[in-house]
Structures are given as structure tokens and as C-alpha cells.
């Protein structure tokens, strides 16, 4: 069922496909650690898939910090207009 009015990138089936492929690529990149001998600088960065979970967790943490900060610091964008 192809809706010609919608750009192919916006069709739900494309988006589903992108998600599936994206997750596949993520899994493969994480699995590549199986073939690498870790050369950690500080112990913990030698754990399996360190860069993957560290990237994911720190990014989620940063978004949450930003959200929390936003509660206090967000203002309407006409705030400074007099």
C-alpha cells in the first residue's frame, strides 16, 4: 500500500525498515568487540561494549539533566522582549 503523495522517507513502512536496519547495525557494532582485544586505559573501558553502553547511558543522562535544568531555566521565547 503505497501512498504516492508522501515522500518515501516518511512512509511508515520505510520508518519501520529504518528502525530494523538501525538496530541491526547497532548490534553488529557492539558485537565487533568480540573480535577486538581490549586495550583499556582505565580498567572499566575494557569491559564488553564499553563505548556502546557508555555512549548510550551518558547521552540519556545528559538529556535528563537538560530536562531537569529546563524546568528551572526555560522561559517563553519572548521573555526578553519588552
Amino acid at each position: 500500500m503505497i501512498n504516492p503523495g508522501v515522500h518515501w522517507l516518511q512512509r511508515p513502512e520505510t520508518i519501520r525498515k529504518l528502525w530494523r536496519w538501525g538496530i541491526g547495525v547497532l548490534a553488529v557494532t557492539a558485537m565487533l568487540d568480540l573480535f577486538l582485544t581490549p586495550h583499556p586505559y582505565f580498567m572499566v573501558d575494557g569491559t564488553f561494549g564499553f563505548y556502546a553502553w557508555y555512549g548510550l547511558l551518558t547521552c540519556i543522562a545528559m538529556i535528563i539533566v537538560a530536562k531537569v535544568l529546563g524546568i528551572f531555566l526555560k522561559q517563553g521565547d519572548d521573555y526578553y522582549d519588552d
Binding site: 538501525g22 547495525v25 547497532l26 557494532t29 557492539a30 565487533l32 561494549g49 556502546a52 548510550l56 547521552c59
Partner: peptide, 9 residues
């Protein structure tokens, strides 16, 4: 790994 998983986040 670092970048793609940030993208996931």
C-alpha cells in the same frame, strides 16, 4: 559504538 549508541539515545 560511541556515536551510534548516542544516536540510539
Amino acid at each position: 559504538q560511541l556515536l551510534l549508541f548516542s544516536g540510539l539515545a
